[in-house]
Nucleic acid binder design. Structure first.
Length: 491
DNA sequence: TATGCCGGGAA
DNA sequence: TTCCCGGCATA
């Protein structure tokens, strides 16, 4: 997209250059004549006539062949002297045997097929004025036939490296008319000068040298590019507005995408960020190549209250193994490592019966306390606990043969979800048995690792919202109330 | 559109 | 730590 944008912007660059630089001198002397022609620098106000061929030349060298209007017709001449101060050129007209003094703008460096109309001798300006900006192709110098290519090269050049407007190599004999073709071709009609100006800028600087000075570059070229950059910055900044976290040292994940550096506190977040912003994946496509984002983030540690998007180098990246840190020990304080598989000691005391107790109707029947048959038990808020533990069914043969039981006897690794511990009641089991499909054994059906980190797929299990309805929100589990992952009806 | 829930802020 | 919510992903 960028190229297109730049191309698009590049094109009116000339206009920018023309209009934004009233100082003709700043635009080389070639601009001055143009200015004069447009009536700004000259007393004569009138539509621009055919641009003198010298327009884009800084300097005429003694001995250089030029053409001037003399006696109403164009006469070839030889430059004797070019007075830069007065911008006058002393020209010898061999055909007439005369020496004439002409303003630079009245000097052509190549013959015109259509001789310019009689010039006003006093000002040296052509009497014939044309309101049309289009420069007749007949005014094109032979060299200018390559103008299209040169302009293309110019665009490419500017695209390839810098905002500098690179002047294509050009000899002094290559002049104006081509510019008219390229720039004055009608779009830039009104202040006809603009087209010429821009082109004069681009085409007129003699090759190979007088490179555009930085000042010029800034004053001329940057406007367009600046806008471009600003656009880019705007996009980036909008996208990465720093946010604060209060945690003291913690693990975060930094986007390694060029010029991004976005830091998120969770793998899921960073993956989603990469996916959506950089990989541009959504929906089905996202699922197909979900693991791709793994290569674009790395694990970092952040100190307290640091913006999540410090400038590059400010964050304290921990020399992680590689850019693809897929399974850090802990994604965030609230997330457990999916890779942690440890048989947990059943914690009967950590159960939070409040949840189940809150459901006298369905859950009061809960008889989870079969000795030895203990599920992972934790406070319902454990979704925020750092170290969730997966409970393995104790050896004590629980008579309850629950699908949940079997599924949880092994490590329950769910997509993007920590090992949530939960208290299970008969009511829940009933619900799960009757409303939710039997969970297959995780080990056999667990998705590829790359899929785990993403937002977990919505399960079939009912959630508090569905079970109790919004009107009984008070009966929801805390997580549901907080719009967190449901702790009561786990997938 | 409804739902689930992540990420983050406020108290 | 608890509570809440904006906003995104998904069904």
């Amino acid at each position: 997209m960028l190229p297109k944008t730049r191309l698009g912007k590049r094109s009116p660059l000339g206009a920018l250059m023309c209009t934004s630089s009233p100082n003709a001198e700043g635009l080389l002397e070639t601009g001055a004549p143009r200015d004069a022609q447009g009536g700004v620098g000259n007393s004569a106000m009138g539509p621009p006539g055919p641009p003198p061929l010298s327009r884009f030349n800084n300097k005429l060298h003694p001995g250089q062949k030029v053409y001037v209007v003399c006696g109403g017709r164009e006469c070839p001449g030889v430059v004797e002297q070019h007075n830069h101060v007065d911008n006058e050129v002393a020209i010898l007209l061999p055909t007439l045997g005369q020496h004439v003094l002409r303003k630079l703008e009245d000097v052509w460096t190549s013959p015109n097929v259509l001789p310019p109309p009689a010039a006003i001798q006093g000002t040296g300006r052509p009497a014939q004025v044309s309101s049309c900006i289009d420069v007749p192709r007949s005014y094109r110098s032979p060299d200018s036939v390559d103008m299209d290519e040169m302009m293309a090269a110019l665009v490419l050049t500017s695209l390839s490296h810098s905002p500098l407007v690179q002047s294509p190599p050009k000899t002094d004999t290559v002049t104006v008319c081509s510019a008219g073709v390229e720039c004055g071709g009608g779009e830039l009609s009104d202040s006809g000068s603009s087209g010429y100006w821009s082109c004069g800028r681009g085409c007129g600087s003699p090759a190979p040298s007088p490179p555009i000075t930085e000042t010029e570059v800034h004053s001329l070229a940057t406007p367009s590019d600046e806008g471009l950059d600003m656009e880019m910055e705007q996009v980036l900044f909008d996208e990465h507005a720093p946010r604060k976290r209060r945690n003291s040292l913690k693990v975060s994940y930094r986007c390694l995408w060029p010029n991004c550096g976005k830091i998120l506190t969770s793998v899921v977040g960073i993956k989603r960020h990469i996916r959506t912003l950089h990989l541009g994946q959504t929906g089905e496509h996202e699922r197909c190549s979900r693991s791709e984002e793994d290569f674009y983030y790395t694990e970092v540690q952040q100190r307290q209250a640091q913006p999540l998007t410090p400038p590059p180098g400010v964050s304290i990246p921990i020399p992680t193994t590689s850019s693809s840190t897929r399974w850090p020990a802990c994604a965030s304080p609230t997330r457990a490592s999916p890779s942690r598989v440890e048989p947990a000691v059943p914690e009967a005391d950590s159960d939070s019966p409040t949840e189940t107790g809150a459901q006298p109707g369905q859950l009061s029947k809960s008889a989870p306390s079969i000795p030895g048959f203990i599920w992972q038990v934790h406070s319902e808020h454990s979704y925020q606990a750092p170290a969730p533990v997966q409970v393995v069914a104790p050896p004590t043969s629980g008579s309850t043969s629950d699908s949940w039981n079997t599924s949880s006897t092994s490590t329950q690794i769910r997509q993007g979800a920590p090992f949530r511990v939960r208290s299970v009641s008969v009511g829940e089991q009933w619900l799960q048995q009757h409303s939710a499909p039997i969970r297959p054994h995780p080990s056999s059906t667990s998705p590829p690792r790359s899929l785990w980190t993403s937002r977990r797929i919505r399960g079939e299990a009912k959630k508090c919202r569905k079970v109790y309805g919004i009107e009984h929100r008070d009966q929801w589990c805390t997580a549901c109330r907080w719009k967190k992952a449901c702790q009561r009806f786990l997938d």
